[in-house]
């Protein structure tokens, strides 16, 4: 039995006036998965999130949550979604306790005690106006409120932006607990590649409004390799020959004093041998290296 994906974009195209923001983005997030959307500033991440939350209407294509068009059925969908926005958007004079009471009265089911317990555990003063809390605490309040409705889907738009390392770890820990406890689906956009590496099931990379790739993190890490070999000069690279380079098909090449490093997708031992680099050292690539290679270097994924 195939269940409907919790998050679904099909040919999503967004624009601000004449300025395009997203071009034909399609992705799916199955229930229980953690999907990390990566991309540089201005790549369209926040626009995508706004489309997913029914806050902006697509020019073309559609955005669906739980199988329903979210622009048309926003209120119904939001009952099952918890949102942590990029910048805190609570009314500044509101306290966390007031916010919980307010959201509770608007939601079909609300775990007020859970919200209070979470805030107490994180030592956030529930009576203080949120504008007076630290940025990290404001994010925790936002997360607590997002989880208060016991959502099936959690959407976090760059939640670690502006957080110090301790606050960042606190956030991930709360998120992990939530995943362990309820197995919610998570859609998170982030710059924190190292932090998300342990969490994400599936990864998408957005670049100038297009989805460069969209695959399970494990498969992505299995595909890419860093191939290093020593050279005495730039002519050695040229000496590899275009066929060899084509066999290797690197996505990004960096040179330093010790030699050359190539980021290779679709790595195979045969390809390596064909390039005459059978003795090169081959190691895995971190998510950050893959991201930098794809977004900085020539795009050949």
């Amino acid at each position: 039995m195939t269940s409907i994906p919790v998050v679904q974009c099909a040919g999503l195209t967004m624009a601000y006036g004449r300025r395009p923001a997203l071009a034909g983005v399609s992705l799916e997030v199955p229930a229980g998965a953690v999907y990390a959307l990566l991309g540089r500033n201005g790549s369209g991440k926040s626009t995508l999130v706004r489309a997913l939350l029914g806050l902006a209407r697509p020019r073309a294509g559609e955005a669906r949550l739980f199988g329903e068009d979210v622009w048309r059925h926003r209120a119904r969908a939001m009952a099952r979604v918890g949102v942590v926005p990029e910048t805190p958007d609570l009314p500044p004079a509101m306290s966390a306790a007031q916010a919980s009471a307010f959201c509770g009265r608007l939601a079909p089911a609300w775990d007020g005690a859970g919200v209070a317990a979470r805030l107490a555990r994180l030592q956030v003063d529930p009576a203080m106006p949120v504008a007076r809390l630290s940025r990290g605490q404001q994010t925790q309040v936002a997360l607590a409120l997002a989880l208060g409705g016991r959502p099936e889907l959690l959407v976090l738009d760059d939640p670690t932006l502006g957080l110090d390392p301790v606050a960042r770890q606190d956030l991930y820990r709360e998120l992990l607990d939530e995943l362990a406890e309820r197995g919610s689906t998570v859609f998170i956009t982030t710059h924190d590649l190292a932090g998300i590496e342990g969490l994400a099931d599936r990864v998408g990379i957005l670049h100038q409004g297009r989805l460069l790739l969209d695959e399970p993190l494990e498969a992505l890490k299995a595909r890419f390799r860093q191939v290093r070999w020593a050279t005495s000069g730039p002519e050695d690279l040229a000496a590899l020959g275009p066929e060899a380079l084509a066999a290797l098909a690197p996505v990004a090449i960096t040179r330093d004093a010790f030699g050359v490093q190539a980021l290779v997708p679709g790595f195979t031992a045969e390809g390596l041998a064909a390039a005459g680099l059978a003795e090169a050292s081959v190691t895995g690539a971190s998510l950050e290296e893959i991201f930098m290679g794809l977004v900085n270097g020539e795009v050949q994924a």
């Binding site: 229980g32 953690v34 770890q169 991930y172 820990r173 992990l176 607990d177 995943l179 362990a180 406890e181 197995g183 342990g198 969490l199 994400a200 099931d201």
Partner: peptide
């Protein structure tokens, strides 16, 4: 437990 270990290692509980 899965939850405790996930917490300690800071990885997805599903993993």
């Amino acid at each position: 437990s899965v939850r405790d270990l996930a917490r300690d290692l800071r990885v997805n509980p599903a993993t």
